[in-house]
């Protein structure tokens, strides 16, 4: 609480950045819009970095935690994949499609069992009363299949989701696919696409209302992106 108040009084902007594959393009984006220095030197393993001249503090967190930091107000702004936003179902403003980190969220199954069916739905229904879905995204999976009217049991896993159908733990997986290499190696095929994923800029709902600096910054970024025409898409 003190932390947040101190930040607000100095009009510091707290930005939550995702560790991992989105980290570098996120920092590049921040440099482009003037929220980070081009020549900034990022020490390894530092979880918090402070740029007193720009008035920005960077919090380096797990991608799946970015939405939590922002919705709880520990960070005003965050960068995170659309997949994490869809799964979290928390209250944040999603203001900009940053265009990078592009991949697909899809349903996949072992090719040897699914190849005989003309369409994915026939395959799903052939799996008995309850389709078992191994995934890092149980909420998205349940929502997707309930739209199709299919009863599913989501099996939440933290990683190596492809393993689950091989050992009979699940019938299908719902996971991110970027090149398709991982699926191929594990003799799986993409049955359908659930969503196209890119990185998004998200904002705490109250910061958006009570912090003029943040609203102005976002307005400026929006104009900049619009006049560039490319890069980020609305």
């Amino acid at each position: 609480m003190l932390f947040r108040n101190e930040a607000a009084s100095k009009d510091l902007v707290n930005i939550a950045l995702p560790k991992g594959r989105l980290e570098f393009p996120s920092r590049q984006f921040l440099a482009e819009v003037g929220l980070a220095r081009e020549d900034a030197d990022w020490p390894d393993r530092a979880l918090v970095q402070h740029d007193p001249i720009l008035g920005v503090r960077y919090l380096l967190v797990r991608p799946s935690d970015v939405v939590t930091y922002v919705s709880e107000g520990a960070a005003d702004v965050g960068i995170v994949g659309k997949d994490v936003i869809m799964e979290a179902d928390l209250s944040v403003y999603e203001v900009l499609d940053l265009g990078f980190g592009e991949c697909r969220l899809g349903v996949a199954a072992p090719s040897r069992v699914s190849a005989d069916y003309p369409c994915p739905e026939d395959f799903y229904r052939s799996r008995g009363d309850m389709l078992r879905v191994a995934t890092k995204y149980p909420n998205i999976a349940e929502r997707h299949f309930s739209h199709l009217g299919l009863p599913v049991r989501a099996i939440p896993l933290r990683g190596s989701v492809e393993l689950a159908p091989m050992v009979g733990l699940a019938d299908v997986i719902v996971d991110l696919v970027s090149t398709g290499k991982t699926l191929e190696t594990n003799e799986m095929v993409l049955l359908e696409e659930v969503a196209r994923i890119t990185a998004r800029l998200i904002v705490n709902p109250v910061s958006m209302k009570v912090r003029p600096r943040i609203t102005n910054l976002l307005g400026d970024i929006r104009s900049q992106k619009k006049s560039e025409g490319g890069g980020a898409r609305a």
């Binding site: 203001v95 900009l96 499609d97 609305a234």
Partner: peptide, 25 residues
């Protein structure tokens, strides 16, 4: 807001401009 901008982008430039009061900036 990404979805809102998507809807606005399908409007003509004058209409899109007018509808910008709905954006939170």
């Amino acid at each position: 807001i990404v979805a809102v901008e998507g809807i606005l982008s399908r409007l003509g430039p004058v209409d899109a401009q007018r509808a910008e009061v709905l954006l939170p900036y």
